[in-house]
Design a protein around this nucleic acid. Sequence first.
DNA 1: TTAAACAAACCGACTGGTCGGTATACAAAC
DNA 2: GTTTGTATACCGACCAGTCGGTTTGTTTAA
Lengths: 217, 217
Amino acid sequence: MGNQLKKDLKQEIIDAALQLFQAHGYNGVSVNQIVAQAGTSKGGFYHHFKAKDELLYEIHDIFITYVLEEAKQTEEHYTTPIAKLCALLHSFTAAFHTYQAHITVFYDESKSLLDSDREVITQKRDAYRKILQQVIVEGQKSGDFREALPPTIVTLSITGMVNWSYKWYKQDGMMTMAQITAIFIDMILRSIVTQQGAEEAKHYSIESANIDAGFIF
Amino acid sequence: MGNQLKKDLKQEIIDAALQLFQAHGYNGVSVNQIVAQAGTSKGGFYHHFKAKDELLYEIHDIFITYVLEEAKQTEEHYTTPIAKLCALLHSFTAAFHTYQAHITVFYDESKSLLDSDREVITQKRDAYRKILQQVIVEGQKSGDFREALPPTIVTLSITGMVNWSYKWYKQDGMMTMAQITAIFIDMILRSIVTQQGAEEAKHYSIESANIDAGFIF
DNA sequence: TTAAACAAACCGACTGGTCGGTATACAAAC
DNA sequence: GTTTGTATACCGACCAGTCGGTTTGTTTAA
């Protein structure tokens, strides 16, 4: 437990790499730059990592493992498809505060992963998408979501709309991520609910008063 | 006119670079690899380009210039905000067939642009976004789009949802881009129209019969 | 004393870019 | 019609510098 009180060098390296990769891309950053920013040396680096590739893999894995685990727990904790969907989106976007750099690297630099590493990551990413898509399918079966929409496209649309915010969301911007997410959810629900589902979805509309009171998890 | 019958070397270089950049990123590809793939030499390359940077800039500019011009014309050609929005989306996604590689490079590698180049590109990209956002604002003023939604977030949501498809759309997949776009439009319209706008939006619903007949420009 | 944690010097491969030269095309001069 | 001049298109050897990674040496903690 206490071994994280003093940030160790490995974490320092990861943090430095995150910043640099986010700004210049994996192949645009040299190991020398990373160790300089982290305040260490190449010896220190290669003591903790077998290769530069491994660092990129760790960044990917830290992020997707966290998100996947979070999604599993969230999905189990709620009952209706609509509630599940909202909770999934909120739990994902909540990660932006801590993981925005991870996300940028995850989506822009995964092509630089070793093939073997990418397989592992892809598997976890697909597992995450499967959870989301399953919720959509559940909602269609329960009659809350329109069956005319292909679940795969809906899933990818939602993912795109939400993910894309890594390109424009600023921590110090005019809106918090929770506020933005409320709008996402409003738009997404309206686009996919049936008349039956509209009842429950109303609670998540930004026109209903209880939004500014905040969304609790 | 006839000077393009035989593909010239410069175009060959750009095509090769597009493929390679899309697969491995700008900094993951060397000039040697590009000229090998293009079937030319280092000398040939630097005869046509002052530097590797210039090639990346050209790829960006070709794409955004095309898209921006297309958007301007499209926007002028339609009257109602709803029609404008639909036409804008269709004209953008139609570019995927020819420009998917450009788009990938555009969104993944713009951080590798020279600062001066990036300024020019950013300006054009903002001009495009402004066109889209203006349509949203018009729709709010006309009473077709919900005024509760912040136009900036709506614009970014739409952009995200549509753009993200560059990560998963396959030319030889089960759905054509036009079919996918019809679903995008259905979802987007439902999420932003008022009761008033719903009338006109019905024409673009995937539940109405005329969708499989195709969308004509 | 031993092992882990780092530092610094170093290595070969490769990088973006240059340079002298050649091949081709077309126009002017004779 | 042939020669000459000149600009463009292109080639491939070569350069200085940087890359990821290794090796050797030193410090620190147990």
